[in-house]
């Protein structure tokens, strides 16, 4: 390295040195990195608790260099509730997949959101059960082949995919809801922005925040990593549009800037 060069991209402090076990090209790793970068930027590592769930990210507690609790399948929002009721100032985030959150854990996520519990959910939607070898998920697209929808998911057989952000957006409790995609550089940048916003919402004590990240599963989609991110961009976003559904922090900031009338400010 020449001495006049500055490091512009470094391994995040909030990740341990443990090598992640994800398949090549799986965007779990990208999501982990973005969350870790946000934790570093907000300086909250020593007061953050990571909630690992059941699925490919079950080892999240080995990857994030924070305190951590491993949760049973789908129950992380209830565990987060328990922690936050005891320690309101601790920053808690649950890292959940689509099976964990939108299938077995649907009751817990909906009620935690409805209560406006002040924690953050990072929701990885890759439309498949990865760890158990590619079964149909609640978010599997119509027509998508999985190991339990071998002819492709059909609505008469297996119903329709669940749009979690839209569903939670019917509730008054959430303070921040956004869906982003981990597919291309602009989308990944936006994803990080949303993750930061979600954590800032929690730090400000505004209540429940969730970022849905459209993600890949090259292995069980039967695609190369490059085909998989194209699939996210071209197919998944049709069913799951990218949007910021709710941002109460922005609303609050709007009020604050309205209060400081023009001319009185900086």
């Amino acid at each position: 390295m020449t001495t006049d060069m500055k490091q512009v991209y470094a391994y995040p402090d909030a990740l341990t040195e443990v090598e992640m076990r994800y398949c090549p090209g799986c965007t779990h790793g990208t999501a982990h990195r973005l969350v870790a970068e946000v934790i570093d930027e907000l300086g909250i590592k020593d007061r953050t608790v990571t909630l690992a769930t059941v699925g490919c990210s079950v080892y999240a507690y080995e990857y994030f260099d924070t305190d951590a609790v491993q949760c049973s399948h789908g129950r992380a929002p209830a565990v987060a509730t328990g922690i936050k009721r005891v320690q309101p100032d601790t920053i808690v985030f649950a890292y959940q997949g689509d099976g964990d959150l939108a299938s077995i854990g649907m009751a817990e996520i909906v009620h935690a959101a409805a209560r406006g519990e002040n924690f953050t959910v990072i929701f990885l939607n890759n439309a498949v059960y990865g760890m158990t070898q590619g079964q149909m998920a609640p978010t599997t697209l119509l027509g998508q082949k999985t190991t339990t929808s071998p002819r492709g998911r059909t609505a008469p057989e297996a119903g329709f995919p669940i749009r979690v952000c839209e569903l939670l957006d019917t509730l008054d409790g959430p303070a921040f809801l956004a869906r982003e995609a981990l597919s291309t550089p602009p989308h990944v940048r936006n994803a990080k922005r949303a993750i930061k916003r979600a954590f800032e919402t929690q730090v400000a004590g505004l209540g429940f925040s969730l970022v849905e990240l459209l993600s890949t599963c090259p292995t069980w989609w039967g695609m190369t990593p490059l085909e998989a991110i194209k699939h996210v961009d071209e197919q998944m976003t049709k069913c799951y549009p990218i949007a910021v559904f709710r941002d109460r922090l922005a609303a609050q900031e709007g009020e604050q800037s309205a209060e400081s009338a023009p001319g009185e400010g900086e």
Partner: peptide, 10 residues
């Protein structure tokens, strides 16, 4: 874009 978090940039 690196999911393996294995790239540093200067």
């Amino acid at each position: 874009m690196c999911p393996s978090v294995c790239i540093e940039v200067y």
